[in-house]
């Protein structure tokens, strides 16, 4: 147990150091920024789908609201950016509480209602007065453009979400969530507060993408409704997390790094094929590799669970 903890920690430290050096190395900053962004999204999504078993098909809304809160606070009210990004996180929390009643829905009902809610938010945001949210053209933050600062902020968030995932998988909450997933009624009879445990995970899974949205808005310095509430962002989050393996910590990280790399490669060369590849990958994953790469490895060799998690 102890040695494996040390290995995990040293891997995290080395990866962090490398990512911290990217801006001074001859490497593409946006590439690694988005790689971290997707690691964060996939890891946070894993909390609600991997641990709790709820599929929020409108997951993009937390990110989208995060981008807008930061953009609006900075451009309209002059709130300093780091503070605006914190407000994005708070907005994510508020949103997750507002949607807490949907947690009593199950399976496909939860997925669809969440998806429809994201669409509602998108339409509402796009139709807010232009003086508030910039309408369908969105908001520019070019006056605040600081790629280096936002890069390091994303690095911090990425490390934080991976650490939160590690903590969760060993914590009481994590065990409770696994019990609930296995047998909800039995968990309740054992004194586990089912709805509260789910709510905690839901809030955690919401606050991270909202913060990521705020940071990403700062990095790209532009926010618009089509990008902020794009269904494809949910799709990519699901695919990246599933490809690596839901319910594991390394899975979403591996999935995001590999699939984002592939996505970026194809996107640069054959933009039309991108959608096709994403679609085929989803079908393949669901039907042939539902546990993902890491999950399948662990299933094949259970001893691996001690080394990779």
């Amino acid at each position: 147990m102890k040695t494996y903890r040390k290995t995990t920690l040293s891997v995290i430290v080395i990866a962090t150091l490398f990512l911290a050096m990217v801006p001074v190395l001859p490497l593409s900053k946006p590439y690694f920024f988005y790689m971290m962004f997707w690691i964060t999204m996939a890891s946070a999504f894993n909390i609600i789908y991997g641990f709790v078993g709820y599929l929020p098909f409108g997951y993009v809304m937390f990110y989208g609201v995060g981008t807008y809160v930061t953009a609006v606070l900075w451009s309209r009210l002059g709130v300093p950016l780091p503070l605006a990004i914190l407000c994005s996180g708070a907005a994510g929390l508020v949103l997750s509480l507002a949607f807490a009643p949907t947690l009593r829905l199950k399976g496909i009902y939860f997925a669809i209602v969440n998806f429809a809610s994201a669409m509602v938010l998108r339409i509402v945001v796009a139709n807010l007065p232009e003086a508030w949210a910039g309408g369908s053209f969105g908001i520019s933050l070019s006056g605040a453009y600081k790629p280096l600062a936002s890069y390091y902020l994303m690095l911090a968030l990425t490390v934080a979400s991976v650490v939160v995932g590690l903590w969760l998988s060993h914590s009481r909450l994590g065990i409770a969530l696994r019990c609930i997933r296995d047998d909800e009624a039995a968990a309740a009879v054992m004194g586990i507060n089912v709805s509260m445990s789910r709510l905690k995970a839901w809030m955690l899974a919401a606050v991270i993408p909202s913060l990521a949205g705020g940071i990403e808005a700062w990095f790209t310095a532009i926010v618009d409704p089509d990008t902020s509430f794009n269904l494809m962002s949910t799709a990519k989050t699901i695919v990246y997390a599933m490809f690596g393996g839901l319910g594991t910590i390394t899975g979403p990280i591996f999935g995001a790094v590999f699939m984002y790399g592939l996505d970026d490669f194809i996107w640069g060369r054959f933009p039309l094929l991108n959608l096709l590849v994403l679609g085929v990958t989803i079908i393949f994953l669901i039907l042939f590799l539902p546990r993902g790469v890491v999950g399948s490895l662990i299933q094949r060799w259970p001893g691996l669970r001690k080394i990779i998690e």
Binding site: L55, L273, L275, G279, V280, P290
Partner: peptide, 30 residues
């Protein structure tokens, strides 16, 4: 068969056909 065998067939079918929808859209675009 594959969908029925998965842990949660409803969600599995939902995601599978979401994949199919992307494939069809890209084919139409091409």
């Amino acid at each position: 068969n594959r969908i029925q065998q998965s842990e949660d067939p409803e969600i599995a079918s939902f995601l599978t056909f979401f994949g199919v929808s992307l494939v069809i859209t890209s084919l139409i675009l091409m």
